[in-house]
Write a protein that binds this DNA or RNA. Structure first.
Lengths: 196, 196
DNA sequence: CCCATCTTGAACCAATCAGTTCAAGATGGG
DNA sequence: CCCATCTTGAACTGATTGGTTCAAGATGGG
């Protein structure tokens, strides 16, 4: 096959993203990427860039896709902040429950590998964590939480969300993952007061 | 140097453990280990085993060392469960604050790399997570928490503890890490009642 | 029908990987 | 003093790494 048509870059990027997500940067070779995408080595190189560039594109894709989902989940925070927080965790829990997708989290995996990754990649992963924190803080403030509590809970929610990535890889059941977030949601419900 | 004496195996193991801890299994070469331990390649191979064996020994060393610290921190759980939980997190927070030691956590790092590690190593890492859960559940039950709450909070505490490994690598400040655990401790204080 | 365009497989490169072997040298006990 | 014991550096193997090039082939537009 050749001529005018091309393979589907979006599909290839998804495949590469999933591969990086499952195995991490270091444990993903170009051969792995070739196998995962069904593309030739030279095709990857010519149209997706080198390994570092491709990884960065996959990271962008990941944060954009799930960032949108997190935003949507938190969109009702002003009216029902507790429901928003629950929906926020549901995005992660549903992703983990999806058998089509790897466990864990590409951002968590990347952050953990920070000491051995290129500066640009490490910075982008840290930025994603910071953005998650900002997202949560904004939502909690909109939910009429005072600044100090919003700051603390934003950090806490972001951390617990990342912990799900670790625990899911440790074989923790979905019920236990749910129990982990329920403790957090109960704590949030308490500071929010009787409403919601 | 040769003859009757030998190098200090404990020191070498510590150096290897720190290297694995910082860079993970995949990103640690035998040359890295040689540099970190100050030992020759062949010395490592002959007296510390191959890479897989050595990693397993380092993982055992890590879990034993900090397992003891976590046990000690939780030893007062029957009398003062909240103080015990606080001391539990302090073990992790002090480890992260120590400039001599890497950020993160060897167990968390290993669990995240589960899909690409040998079965024995992956199993050992999962076992360490399970042991942490058991440790916490036992302590919380001793602190007069009813079974259901002890189960939930044990999972939650273990997860938040692991989240500190991720967040510390994301550049989160110690104050923010403290805020993350304080939310959890407040929640625990509430279910424990007015005492402690 | 034919040519421009694109994809593909294969090969190549230098570097690194884990693993292993071994002779040379240093040391201490007897 | 000398020999058994241990450490060391160096070298080697075969495999794999990321990166790059290129000729051959397939395709579609004109």
């Amino acid at each position: 096959m050749a001529g005018r048509k091309q393979f589907d870059i979006a599909t290839a990027l998804d495949a590469a993203m999933t591969q990086f997500w499952r195995a991490g940067y270091a444990d993903t070779s170009l051969d792995d990427l070739s196998r995962a995408t069904g593309l030739n080595r030279s095709s990857i190189y010519s149209s997706l860039g080198d390994k570092d560039t491709l990884f960065l594109r996959c990271l962008e894709r990941y944060t954009a896709r799930y960032g949108d989902k997190y935003d949507a989940a938190l969109s009702c925070a002003a009216d029902r902040p507790l429901a928003a927080a629950r929906a926020f965790f549901d995005v992660t829990l549903e992703r983990i429950a999806d058998p089509e997708l790897p466990d864990g989290c590409l951002v968590a995996q990347t952050v953990m590998a920070t000491p051995v990754l290129s500066a640009s990649v490490a910075a982008r992963a840290r930025e994603a964590i910071g953005l998650q924190h900002t997202r949560l803080r904004t939502a909690l403030k909109a939910g009429r939480l005072h600044d100090e509590a919003a700051e603390s809970f934003a950090a806490h929610l972001a951390a617990v969300n990342q912990s799900l990535a670790v625990m899911s890889r440790a074989g923790t059941s979905t019920e236990q993952l749910r129990a982990i977030v329920d403790v957090t949601l109960d704590a949030l419900a308490r500071v929010l007061g009787p409403s919601d």
